[in-house]
Amino acid sequence: MKSISSKVYMYILYAFLYLPILVLIVFSFNQSKSRANWTGFTLHWYADLFRDERILTSLLNTVIVALAASVLATVLGTMAALGIHSMGKFGKSVLMGATYIPVINPEIIMGISLMILFRFFVAHFNFQFGFATLILAHISFDVPYVIYNVLPKLRAMNPNLVEAAQDLGCNPRQAFFKAVIPEIMPGIFSGFLMALTYSVDDFVVSYFTSGTTVETLSVTIESMTRVKVSPKINALSAIIFVVITAILIIKNVLENRRLRRDMALSRAALKEARGK
């Protein structure tokens, strides 16, 4: 960022990205219901928010759906990645192509196509729209991200690692759990986190697959913006903003620290090697 013009450009860009959110947050403390007229400081929208039965229920629903879907997607996706990794070229490319579909397909098409499928289930089996449909739908768009996170770890793994474990007395099962799983654990974990965030954030697919009995937070927010506008939404945005920012900052700090430590360690190793 050498020149002044590029600095100015970046400031304007980030202002464009953040100002709307900041305005939203500021008005969460506004006394009146107005979204433009400042009439004084208050916290009662926050208090209202935590008394709002509907929002709290949908928040809980979101947590349940997101956790269940991302845990199941992590198991399914990790198994899939292990299978894909040991497949031949043809099987691999077919399955990876199929995995690409939910990623690139417009969300609305994924939503309506699953809706049609679930309607079919409802019509022919003892099946209801609700948690089950939401979780099944969420797993479907979560799994690819788990696969994309685990596969590179498998590719980067030393192919002799499993053999080394067997050589040291592990049966194939032990070798898998003691050598392979710990090795790809970072990928599994980041896949899980990515699945979790996509699930929490999802609106479109949930909108089409939730039915009328169970509402996730996004669905609730959408219907709130549609009918009555309340500063409670602003308060909710402020809380979400603070939580997300905190998580990302902590993650960034930890990563930077690890980066520096790794650099220091490899420098030390280099020095030692030279000293010999």
Binding site: V23, L24, T197, I221, T225, I240
Partner: peptide, 15 residues
């Protein structure tokens, strides 16, 4: 901003 629900982001522009 990307991790904030996009409904809320769009709602911000509404206001």
């Amino acid at each position: 901003p990307m991790w904030i629900n996009f409904l809320l982001r769009t709602y911000a522009w509404m206001t």
